[in-house]
């Protein structure tokens, strides 16, 4: 295992120390339980957005804490959801009297731990709502399964609901917006290589030199389909086809396109893939109104990418464009 780490069990704690140093103007990092909050939290009279999940997806979620986005993030161990204590501590640290919105990626562990925390906070009289993000079309949604996973779309939910909260929207509004983003967001990812979880010490799965995996999750879990490696045009077409067919995204739709690196893919390749995706969407008559290209929801050093489409309306565009000041996303201030 080739990593710039010390003790595998201390990776998250040590990384948080570095993150605290790197962004001391923006963030407050607490340990025991681990917690990343806005430097100015709690913000009185504002709905507080709290998210979190396993570590290893950086900049998600700590990199999105700051004015206009999250109020707190709860980093679990690598690929392991945080505990209820962490989430509860986050809720208590940032709630400003206007309620708390939990943005939770739809994984059994995350759902259960956040659920428990929500109950504990509610018992203390804090109004808490939860929105589950489940944008991954690789997973068939059904009553009898764990449902679709939350992947790249998570940051769109955090940005848009966060902007509304910053402007003073109430809990109902923030929740409705978050649900609207979830309802209009679809993603699909693929990998060229697997990643290695520090405490595991070997790759999550193996792919031959001429293989790729479609429908990859963000936890190093293998995808649904192993295929021969293709040129970028073919790879991106697979992702665009699957994502647009799912909602579906139709001619005339206005969208935000997130071309996301799984962590280890060079920006050069990511831009190339983004260009292909824009071309394919134009062919379908889908208008890309906003775009974001970079490593935003990652899976450690995994090489690969995901595409996320969000169907936009004027209100969502306005909230997307609103100022945001976080470690990983920053504009307008």
């Amino acid at each position: 295992m080739k990593k710039i780490i010390n003790d595998p069990a201390a990776v998250v704690a040590e990384a948080l120390r570095g993150m605290a140093a790197a962004h001391q103007d923006l963030l407050t990092v607490r340990t025991d339980p681990a917690l990343v909050t806005r430097a100015d939290a709690p913000v009185a009279g504002r709905v507080a957005l709290v998210s979190g999940g396993g570590s290893g997806h950086e900049p998600l979620h700590g990199g999105f804490v700051g004015p206009g986005m999250l109020h707190a993030a709860c980093p679990g161990p690598v690929f392991t959801s945080p505990t209820p204590d962490q989430v509860q501590a986050a809720i208590e640290a940032v709630h400003g009297g206007a309620g708390v919105l939990l943005v939770v990626k739809n994984y059994t562990g995350d759902v259960l731990n956040f659920e428990t925390a929500a109950e504990l906070a509610a018992a203390e009289g804090i109004e808490v709502r939860t929105v589950l993000v489940d944008d991954d079309v690789a997973v068939k949604d059904s009553l009898y399964t764990a449902g679709r996973r939350g992947v790249g779309g998570t940051l769109l939910v955090e940005k848009i609901a966060g902007a509304a909260a910053e402007r003073g929207a109430d809990l109902d509004t923030c929740e409705e917006l978050a649900r609207r983003v979830v309802a209009n967001t679809r993603s699909l990812g693929m990998a060229l290589t697997a990643c290695t979880v520090p405490h595991v010490g070997e790759p999550s799965f193996t792919l031959a030199e001429d293989e790729m995996e479609i429908g990859i999750g963000i936890h190093g879990e293998p995808g649904r389909q192993r295929l021969p490696l293709e040129p970028a045009d073919g790879i991106v077409r697979r992702l665009v086809d699957a994502v647009t067919e799912d909602l579906p995204f139709a001619e005339g739709d206005r969208v935000l396109l997130l071309t996301n690196s799984m962590g280890g893919t060079p920006l050069l390749e990511l831009y190339l893939a983004h260009g292909v995706a824009e071309g394919l969407l134009a062919e379908r008559g889908v208008t890309v109104e906003r775009r974001l290209v970079g490593p935003y929801v990652t899976s450690l050093e995994m090489q690969g990418m995901s595409l996320t489409l969000l169907r936009l309306d004027d209100e969502l565009i306005d909230l997307w464009d609103a100022p945001v000041r976080t470690a990983a996303l920053r504009w307008g201030c």
């Binding site: 679990g76 392991t80 959801s81 945080p82 505990t83 562990g109």
Partner: peptide
């Protein structure tokens, strides 16, 4: 267990 395990197994 609830406050230290995390993941699905912790709450379960």
């Amino acid at each position: 267990l609830i406050s230290t395990v995390g993941g699905a197994a912790g709450p379960l």
